[in-house]
Amino acid sequence: MEQRKQIVPVALDDADSALVIVDQTLIPNETRYLRLKTQPEIWEAIHSLRVRGAPAIGIAAAYGAYLGVKASDAADFESFYAEFRRVKEYLASSRPTAVNLFWALDRMEACVLRNRERPIAAIKEALRAEADAIKEEDVRANRAIGEYALSLVQPGIGILTHCNAGALATAAYGTALAPIYLGQERGYNFKVFADETRPLLQGARLTAYELMQAGVDVTLICDNMASAVMKNGWVQAVFVGCDRVAANGDTANKIGTSGVAILAKNYGIPFYVCAPTSTIDMNCATGRDIQIEERKPEEVTEQWYAKRMAPEGVKVFNPAFDVTDAEFITAIITEYGIARPPYTESLKELFRRKETAGKQV
């Protein structure tokens, strides 16, 4: 687990007024930290996937919002709030699908409004503390998700995962990879199959890298090989993360996830979605209401090749995410417990638990 301690995907250097991130577009060939000091730099890092993964995006946005108004010379609350709103709206435009981005920015705005009677300097300090709290809560949530997920599996099994929902996508441990890391610490000896995750290869570049660094037995497969390994009996569970959960249990995750879920259903393999409650959007009725980001065609035709691998002018459909229907999801694992169908009821129960836990703090 030493690698998780060494690589911190998102951090704040307050003394230098910089958001510090690992440029995930360069892994595994290079580990480069970027120091982002301007709003356009932070916006570009989120948009271009230099920082990625729903929880990590939320943390980056929270720190970005703080940095966006840290140097404000506003003399009154209304002027300061107007400035904050401009920063918030700008950062919110960087990616449309990951609900954690909007959740974190909304939480930062609520912090501003909650402290409106205080001096501007005190509001800035409160914003810094709120962003720190978002990060610290993510660490605790990830570990709790890992513990709940680990209770569903046995040592020595085969686990398939898609995209990257590990430490690089969060503050620590990850969501879908949290049970794998905890299992590794406890000698479970899981055998993990990582889909490469075309077209941006998050599974090949990031998940395989993370798990190898942690000493996990990991085998990289192309996305279209998932059926073969399942049919061979090598996979007993699927764990994936997600970027948004709708109120009915539909989930949006990296493109290709819905296909994995359908395969798992066919082969009788449980399909688990690991998601902090910050990723659950109870205002989103179904997956049909989730806006799916479409990205540039070059990611498919030429980004990873020395020469183009598709003819010039070919039409390309490149959605970043797809929606897995609730009927294909065995359970949704959160930091407040495990939700099972019908999700319209079990997700509400999770939020009741969350509210009760908040009152007890």
Rank of each mutant, 00 (worst) to 15 (best):
G68S: 03
M282C: 08
A331T: 10
Y81D: 13
Y90G: 09
T277D: 11
D195T: 11
Y272P: 06
K359S: 05
M282K: 09
T344C: 07
G233M: 00
A326T: 09
I292S: 00
F102L: 10
N232H: 12
G358A: 14
A60I: 02
Q154R: 15
G287F: 05
R52D: 04
K315R: 12
R244W: 06
L160D: 04
F193T: 01
F84T: 02
K5C: 01
A144T: 10
I123S: 02
A214G: 10
P297R: 08
K265M: 07
V240T: 15
R143Q: 10
N164H: 12
N29A: 14
Q291D: 13
L67C: 03
A121Q: 15
E117Q: 12
Y209I: 09
T356N: 03
F328W: 14
G174L: 05
N142M: 02
I255F: 10
R32V: 15
L101H: 08
V22S: 05
A61M: 11
S278Y: 05
A15S: 13
A176M: 09
V22T: 14
N164T: 02
A74R: 04
E78A: 15
E294D: 09
S79P: 04
N115L: 09
A178C: 01
G166W: 07
W304H: 15
E78L: 11
L12D: 02
G53F: 01
L201G: 00
L34Q: 12
R107N: 13
P199S: 13
A110P: 04
F351S: 01
V240D: 04
A126W: 02
A15Y: 07
N224C: 10
E89C: 11
L152D: 03
F321L: 10
S72K: 03
G241H: 00
S48P: 05
S93L: 00
A194I: 09
L127F: 01
A165W: 00
L113P: 01
L263W: 07
E125F: 08
E345S: 14
A133C: 14
Q3T: 13
E2C: 04
K135F: 09
L91W: 06
